[in-house]
């Protein structure tokens, strides 16, 4: 029976090698939590820019309001793009920090074939979505921007899930579902955005941290 035990050990080792060589497994759950917090702060900034409170825009297309709002010396387009870039930048910096820390602790490299593949898989749908949203702003359709970001982000996650922890795929599906509902219920677009990018990230991140990193 010693042979059997040895074969089983080999199989387990082979499985681990297949996983480790084709997927980037150092993605930290904490980076999700951090991204969620950044997103909530971003949503708060948009609410205060528009001078509204959450769930006050149920009577339809409250982003009509955006077109006529000027605050802090900015029109809505510059404000939205600025807030979006700030959220993206802070989320990325924190995410890279947490993920580097996890990779170092696991003794893996942060920049290798698997992380390059993951970034490339994420980048294409994200860049497409970014351009799509700029076009929406260009044509004065700000109400469609929050749901569109959810949809494209969800697609990016599903694309990227093949190269990292599988759990990311389900987060992607949830983001797409939220985005598509937001497309039809424009009055709740911003609330759905805050839920998808904020609350879901925090919940998923905490769960993944607990599952893979917590002892």
């Amino acid at each position: 029976m010693n042979d059997t035990k040895q074969h089983l050990e080999h199989l387990a080792e082979m499985r681990a090698l297949m996983e480790r060589s084709s997927r980037f497994l150092s993605l930290s759950g904490l980076s999700g939590v951090w991204a969620g917090l950044c997103a909530l702060a971003g949503a708060a900034a948009v609410y205060s820019f528009l001078g509204i409170t959450p769930f006050s825009g149920r009577d339809g297309y409250y982003f009509q309001k955006a077109i006529h709002t000027t605050q802090w010396g900015m029109d809505y387009k510059s404000a939205f793009v600025l807030i979006a870039l700030l959220v993206l930048a802070t989320a990325l910096v924190g995410g890279i920090f947490c993920t580097t820390r996890k990779a170092r602790r696991q003794g893996h490299r942060i920049w290798d074939a698997t992380s390059r593949r993951l970034l490339w898989a994420l980048a294409i749908p994200l860049a497409t979505g970014g351009c799509f949203c700029l076009a929406l702003l260009y044509w004065d359709l700000p109400g469609l921007v929050p749901p569109a970001t959810l949809v494209f982000y969800g697609l990016a996650l599903i694309n990227g899930s093949k190269f990292t922890l599988r759990d990311v795929e389900f987060l992607g599906l949830s983001e797409i579902a939220l985005g598509l509902s937001g497309m039809f219920y424009l009055g709740t677009g911003l609330e759905l955005w805050a839920f998808g990018f904020g609350v879901l990230h925090i919940l998923y991140g905490a769960w993944m941290y607990w599952k893979y990193e917590g002892q």
Partner: peptide, 14 residues
């Protein structure tokens, strides 16, 4: 076996 495991799930490996 380890080498083969890595190569079957990747196109080219350095």
């Amino acid at each position: 076996l380890g080498i083969m495991s890595i190569l079957v799930v990747n196109d080219w490996v350095e």
